[in-house]
Design a protein around this nucleic acid. Structure first.
Lengths: 132, 132
DNA sequence: CTAAAGTCCGTAGCTGCTACGGAGTCAAGC
DNA sequence: GCTTGACTCCGTAGCAGCTACGGACTTTAG
């Protein structure tokens, strides 16, 4: 299978595949005589894993760890669990942040009378340090 | 006031102040004889506005627009309102995304028995394309 | 007067890609 | 056989929004 097939099957951009290889997230594949990269099902699986982990917001270095942990089948998955929990905590922190932010934006927008700039609560809100 | 004072008063990194100047978000300030940047209260206000808008997640080009709109006092703030609403919509989209993500992570973590890698639902979840 | 702290500037680095350009390669049609 | 178009190669540069570095200069405190 060539690079574009791999890309299509995983929903990953072609250039991204090469990028992942460059940073060591994907192994260097075999090459055809002309130098074209040749992939197999193992590569599809691995890239699937990466794409999916990215979709769940894991960073590339976290994914690198996850892949390493996943390959060591004799180990318990406690470290995987820890990584996932840590990531979830970050996601939840981001959620709280966004919630506060949305609330403030809402307040600014709702109290604005769409009048002149002087009375604009949005601009006022952006200037002041006081939370809504 | 010198650059480090401005930075301290606005909670903005010193290098970031220079960066904002470079990209035209802050005006070029007066200079002392030795060439040091000299700032006044207007600069503090403007940078406050920027820092606060960034904290609310606005992009730098959005902030540029907001600053332009804010400076044209004769105009109504309808465009400001539109920008804010558009931004809020993006924040809410991000919220929905994170909620879905958190749910999935939760599920993966909760069903994992912290056993061997083979039965690890987290690794399984990261491999499969099926949502929780 | 000296030493430490502050400032100057341009440039490179960070993450996670994406795009570009010019070359070589492959498959199909005529 | 030859051409055309699609594919692939590689290195490098760009994106946002900073942050850091290095070497020179200036200011300030003791």
């Amino acid at each position: 299978m060539r690079i574009s097939d791999l890309a299509k099957r995983t929903g990953c951009h072609l250039e991204t595949v090469r990028y992942y290889e460059r940073i060591g997230l994907l192994p260097e594949p075999d090459r055809s005589i002309a130098g074209y990269r040749q992939y197999g099902e193992t590569d599809v699986d691995r890239l699937h894993f990466i794409v999916r982990s990215r979709a769940l917001g894991f960073h590339l270095d976290e994914i690198k760890s996850l892949l390493t942990l996943a390959s060591e089948s004799n180990l318990s998955c406690r470290e995987v669990d820890a990584l996932a929990r840590n990531h979830l905590a970050q996601v939840e922190a981001k959620q709280r942040e966004l919630a506060a932010l949305a609330k403030e934006l809402h307040h600014m927008i709702d109290t604005c009378h769409k009048d002149t700039r002087e009375t604009c609560t949005i601009l006022r809100g952006l200037s002041s340090h006081l939370a809504a």
